[in-house]
């Protein structure tokens, strides 16, 4: 992993996106379809990271058993997030359940 290329690349693409429209705005219209698609980007990317991390903690096979502390912690976190809409509470309770479960079954 080359950190320098990574950060330089991320910085350039982010700045170009933020600045580009100041330059070209008014000269072309953003396609409505693209507009709509962009709204789905964050949940799609985040979910694609979450699901394998939770269901395949060893990186190889799917573990749907109750001894999978990642899965138990994730389910509890999802419920807390759904009911409270509070990010910090979700993280704190999710982590506590995860550690507790790992300690209990491990």
């Amino acid at each position: 992993m080359n950190e320098l290329y990574l950060i330089a690349g991320m910085a350039v693409v982010t700045f170009v996106i933020r600045y580009s429209m100041f330059v070209v705005a008014g000269r072309f219209e953003f396609p409505a379809r693209l507009n709509e698609a962009l709204g789905y980007v964050p949940p799609a990317v985040l979910t694609a990271i979450i699901v394998p991390a939770v269901l395949m903690p060893n990186g190889e096979s799917i573990d749907l058993s109750w001894t999978n502390a990642y899965l138990v912690g994730a389910v509890v976190a999802a419920v807390i997030s759904w009911t409270s809409k509070n990010l910090l509470l979700t993280i704190v309770v999710g982590m506590a359940v995860f550690f507790g479960w790992q300690w209990l079954v491990g």
Binding site: L46, A78, L87
Partner: peptide
Amino acid sequence: FAMPVTFIGMVIPYL
């Protein structure tokens, strides 16, 4: 686990 749990808290409000 901190990362998945953070992301869960960020995704659920989209649903």
